[in-house]
Design a protein around this nucleic acid. Structure first.
Lengths: 334, 334
DNA sequence: TTGAAAGCGATACCAT
DNA sequence: ATGGTATCGCTTTCAA
């Protein structure tokens, strides 16, 4: 493995010059620069990152810690972050906390140990409550989930508005006994709950939220319980894609059909929701924009640690499909 | 940021002793060790990984480079690899090549730059053809995709047998005009094609393979073309989960119903395939086992570079559901 | 069992 | 514009 010394020797210059060719080429005379570049090519030299980091005391590397790597939402966000990072010569390390606060903590420590230049985090609820951004040696940007009073850059969906619109849509379709399946342990679940309650209140209706662990299994079980219980709802609104699939599974297992027997709408416009046989109404999130914006916020923060904290709020788009639209229109409200 | 010097000073020992407490605690007298450990705790000391790597010339870190981060197959594999790596004090870096040979190459170089201890790779076809395992400074284990004659450890599915069984199942259900939608640019697609052809040949039937880019869009398009073309097939077999969803989309868009109008089966037992309204017959892969085995092969190779190359072949399980079973049984073959 | 000191490979300061 | 040299923080001989 060739080192900077070997390159210097071969080019007949000092290691300093080689280093400069690598970092500030315009500071080296063209003739010398060419010789160095040739030596680099001939030796297939690659700088030792460990040595560089040791000296510079930071790595050209950003971390993305997500709560569920399987979610298309986060893979899309990840792709956007990677695109931006790559264009700025930063490497991306992807970590999956799996909704586990201990794992999340461990990955944040990994990032500190690796001397990451910055981290984008989709925190667990517990992690968010304990989060002390200033305690970490890197700038932090939150995505998807955040608390109002946390003093840290973030980009989130207008969850409340999106849930309100989805609920209003269900009401307009004539559904009245709506149950909300809300993902537990996340701020998004709470905010979507708030928007849902808001819309119901405006219509003079009482909310019926059910809080569910954000797993497929739990989604199936909770939906099945609700459907089998007393006063079966005439519609379900589900606050994330995983639970939405679970709810649909339970609906079909119970022999019910959307939109007639039951209305259905939910967050995350995953591929399968568009299948004609399912045709599920969803709230589509601007996933790529979310990731791109988060990466940009991080880059700006890396350049200026003192700039004011920014929150970017993006809008979701309601994709109306057959699962929430009854052929016979509901009677108009008074 | 406290360094090993600070710890040594506080504990009244040399840096050598601190280093030993960290790596070989039993080589330090209990009394001293306790003092050092206390100093470490008081200063919240964390070793500088860059310095350690620079000295040791390798990182306690393994890479997993997958071709599609969105696939549940790879996220399951990733989880297994992470579990094993974590238990052995190794960190995992997850990379997504996105079926792009250039990205794959770039990530392999990243791993070399990071001085990774080992890499698990699901290669693109082009990457596989050019792959020179001995050219990398780390041991390599292939998952999911491999060529017979590559001299490298690997763990793969018995793709041919699985495709043969799936095809035999379709034949037993009475389907005769079967079209195979096969993912292009992958050894798995080719091997599954081979198993399919084998089963058809045994039944005296002519294969009708269609090679498709492994994206959702391309899957929809290809299936739509096949369904609208002359001599419409009576069944589709699809070699991966992404294309399977696309095929189902096209089937439903064409107003066809499984299993009567058309039979359907495919690889990857993704969550949505179990929805009663879809009920798609699939080949389930032992994803966690694949990941665990790959990680174990890598660890063994890291310990002994000279051990013979091993290939582990795992079996898939055919999950028969309604999409491929006609209510009226087919006439028995002669 | 413990410590002194060399050295890993790069960068950054200070000369020239 | 270029080079000499100290230095980043740790591990690893080697000696005691």
């Amino acid at each position: 493995m060739a080192s900077i010394k070997d390159v210097a020797q071969r080019a007949g210059v000092s290691t300093t010059t080689v280093s400069r060719v690598l970092s500030t080429p315009q500071a080296v005379r063209a003739a010398l620069r060419t010789r160095v570049e040739q030596a680099i090519a001939e030796l297939a030299y690659r700088p030792n990152l460990a040595a560089r980091r040791l000296r510079q005391r930071r790595a050209s590397l950003v971390g993305l810690i997500v709560s569920d790597i399987r979610s298309p939402f986060f893979t899309d966000v990840g792709r956007a972050v990677e695109d931006v990072a790559y264009r700025h010569g930063l490497r991306l390390i992807l970590c999956n906390s799996d909704e586990n606060p201990a794992k999340e903590q461990s990955y944040l420590e990994l990032m500190a140990d690796e001397q990451a230049s910055g981290v984008i985090l989709s925190p667990t609820m517990q992690g968010l409550q304990q989060l002390r951004p200033e305690a970490w040696p890197f700038p932090l940007v939150l995505v998807d989930r955040a608390l109002e009073n946390t003093r840290v850059d973030r980009v989130v969906l207008d969850n409340q508005a999106a849930a309100r619109r989805a609920t209003e849509h269900l009401l307009q379709s004539g559904y009245r006994r709506i149950v909300l399946l809300a993902g537990a342990h996340s701020t998004t679940g709470q905010q979507r709950h708030a928007g849902h309650v808001q819309a119901l209140a405006a219509a003079g209706l009482t909310p019926r939220p059910v809080w569910v662990e954000p797993t497929h299994r739990a989604g199936v079980q909770a939906a099945a319980d609700v459907l089998a219980g007393p006063d079966r709802p005439d519609a379900l609104l589900v606050t994330n894609g995983v639970l939405l699939l679970g709810a649909l599974q339970a609906i079909q297992a119970a022999g019910l059909r959307t939109p007639h027997d039951i209305g259905l709408a939910g967050f995350d416009n995953n591929d399968w929701t568009a299948l004609p046989a399912l045709d599920v109404t969803t709230v589509a999130q601007p996933t790529y924009d979310i990731g791109r914006t988060a990466a940009e916020l991080l880059l700006q923060r890396m350049q200026d640690a003192t700039r004011p904290v920014r929150q970017v709020v993006l809008e979701g788009a309601l994709v109306v499909r057959g699962s929430s639209v009854r052929s016979a229109p509901a009677p108009t409200l008074p």
